[in-house]
Design a protein around this nucleic acid. Sequence first.
DNA 1: TGTACATCAGTGAACGCGCGTTCACTGATGTAC
DNA 2: TGTACATCAGTGAACGCGCGTTCACTGATGTAC
Lengths: 218, 218
Amino acid sequence: MPVEASEPAPNARSVRTRSALIQAGLKLFAERPIDAVPIDDIVAAAGVAKGSFFNHFDDKPRFANAIATEIRHDIEARVAKANCATIDPLERLTGGMVVVVDFALSQRERAIVMLRGAAFSTAKDHPLNAGLRNDIDACVAGGLFNHEARNTGLLLWLGAGQMLMASVIKQRLSRVEAAECMREMIVMALLGLGVDAAQARHLANGCVSAPAEQLETR
Amino acid sequence: MPVEASEPAPNARSVRTRSALIQAGLKLFAERPIDAVPIDDIVAAAGVAKGSFFNHFDDKPRFANAIATEIRHDIEARVAKANCATIDPLERLTGGMVVVVDFALSQRERAIVMLRGAAFSTAKDHPLNAGLRNDIDACVAGGLFNHEARNTGLLLWLGAGQMLMASVIKQRLSRVEAAECMREMIVMALLGLGVDAAQARHLANGCVSAPAEQLETR
DNA sequence: TGTACATCAGTGAACGCGCGTTCACTGATGTAC
DNA sequence: TGTACATCAGTGAACGCGCGTTCACTGATGTAC
């Protein structure tokens, strides 16, 4: 298998510098908006010379972009991992919600940056949203959801997830508080989509207890 | 009744200048983030000298603040006006949603600035959210909502409203499309809160047709 | 009503600093022999 | 394995421009007599 020709080389030192810059950006962009963070602060936090910044990133916007991409890949990988063994679309939906709440709890800085950039867009081409779209379509096709959910169910689910993240972050909820808030939100969102009350509560309870390694370990 | 002593004077010319600056800010802040809008652009759009900016606002952050306040007061007044004659908390909730969607349609620029600032915070002290809180509490107390709605119902409703606004703006929905999207969202959100399906659909239909002067005139 | 004066907003040139970007140089890493 | 050389990332001083803020001056508005 031929290796990508244009990519120059990995190089340990280079990787370390780049990673230090990304880490610093993640930390500082969580504290204040991107435009309020001068490159001087980034390189200082990374313990690196100013010139190095431009060895790795063409300009500041591309750096911000690299950070957004980093976060997106992170959360996409978490969702994919959590759902890789699940085919039931309802469980995939709730599993994604668990991942998002866990992300807000365990990766506070990344979650703040993500929310700031409204990375959670309503765009259907966003990979995460495309996954949700598929699962919701499957539920609608299977008669699990109301017809109102066909078009607008994605929006409701996104709103629920975004508000949960915002709540966990702004109100600094503990894991226990977050789990309860998530349980209630999942019950309501599922009811809204058309799931009957008993099953909605059953599924929501499953999220809080069964995959406990998600919400309680680490 | 004694007049506020510290306030200097209204002065027609002064009012005109200040208003021109605010209008320009509203327009430009909708196009790009605040930090990307230099004061030169604001005064140019307002047709005013640069120095005048500082006659009216101490600095740029306070200007941004004045604009946010302007928008908040605007939407608060609209909600208050729409609900002043309504005591039924369910109708007040749906009436607020109608106002918000109408705002996104008829005041596009203001709505964009509002969403950018995440003015829609989850904070309970925000006046709009306090109003929602009261109405939701009343519904819970009246047995109209599930117990899950007691704590987290506000979040669900906020998420629904925010996603509706974002959707109207980003996808440039027409009034007709927005009305249908809102109808579906209201049905789902009410179902989620615990309203039975028949009443949820009845209320949602009422939003789209009855107060037509809201969604169709102007 | 008219004139003189005080006050206050408007004006735009000038200032200066913060910050993104560049560049000549240095030192480290990897390769050829 | 050791030495010479090429390549490439790291360094931080220097640059320069964009932009927020100031200021001395002008012209308009409002008031006293």
